[in-house]
Design a protein around this nucleic acid. Structure first.
Lengths: 150, 150
DNA sequence: TGAATTCGTACCAATAGGGTACTAATACTA
DNA sequence: TAGTATTAGTACCCTATTGGTACGAATTCA
């Protein structure tokens, strides 16, 4: 399926909030309450984002999370990769570098697979598309649309 | 996950073969053998493609499948929709027409969802991207790449 | 009549997705 | 120093989806 997972969705929502107030730290619980997300799940998502360096964590009382990088340097591709692992268009395409050989095994059709080459091309274009979308754009876009609704 | 399902992959493989020889009919079994795909599963996939009008079925002895429309009029979006259902970027975005109200229920975050508007915009661009890819392009692209490998 | 095929439907098993629970480590505050 | 609020780490559960199978019925040609 060509679908963002719920975890990615939650990650985007949380990141949008962090983008709106980049200087303060926001606790996982507070973020969950504002969006009615399951707190325990959001904590896991934030941890993954923290591991990927997309957010910074501050422990202890009055701690929480803040953006790890400027919003215009965080792309949708990175968010997806941090939460759900790297984007693979198919089992046989979309694996880069040293993983490529492994992917070739995963594609059991091997050389007989008549769409292998074409899918790799599509995959590259898809990643380029997703990478062109930054967190800043998402936050700004939402602001514009929600303003139009009021 | 942003991933094409195996069924979509199989559909593309089968369609590529049908594109190469648009006039003959090809039985499900023959197509499965050429690509080492599970025959029973491919039959289900072909049935779905047939229901969507992307391929024509011919029953009886010496029957099989052929393209239902010219290859340059079949888009990747249609193939995905026929096999896996319509593309939904998220639960809250990407549902058109009369289904829209239903989707709004699916998005339990409702008005509090701060990425709703932005995701709808991304979804539209994604569908436009997938719709710009035709079966003819995939088949031609693959031909070019496989020629380069030899 | 028989063989080859698609059609319709129902079913099974494995995996991934969504979600929870609990304990440890850290840091602020009083 | 004690208490509290937070993240970190891990392990687990449940359900839906996905990948894959099976079988009988309808259709067509020889």
């Amino acid at each position: 399926m060509v679908t963002l997972s719920k975890k990615t969705e939650y990650a985007l929502i949380a990141l949008t909030y962090l983008t709106a107030e980049p200087k303060n730290t926001h606790s996982a619980r507070a973020l969950a309450q504002r969006s009615k997300m399951p707190p325990a799940l959001l904590m896991n998502v934030l941890k993954q984002l923290s591991g990927a360096g997309l957010v910074e964590s501050v422990r202890g009382a009055a701690g929480g999370y803040r953006l790890g990088r400027p919003a215009d340097e965080i792309t949708l591709t990175e968010v997806i990769a941090a939460v759900d692992g790297p984007v693979h268009l198919t089992a046989c395409a979309g694996t880069a570098g040293e993983e490529r050989e492994h992917a070739r095994q995963g594609c059991r059709l091997g050389g007989g697979c008549p769409v292998h080459g074409a899918l790799e091309g599509i995959h590259e274009r898809l990643v380029a598309f997703l990478s062109s979308i930054t967190l800043e754009q998402i936050a700004a876009d939402e602001l514009a649309k929600s303003a139009g609704r009021n």
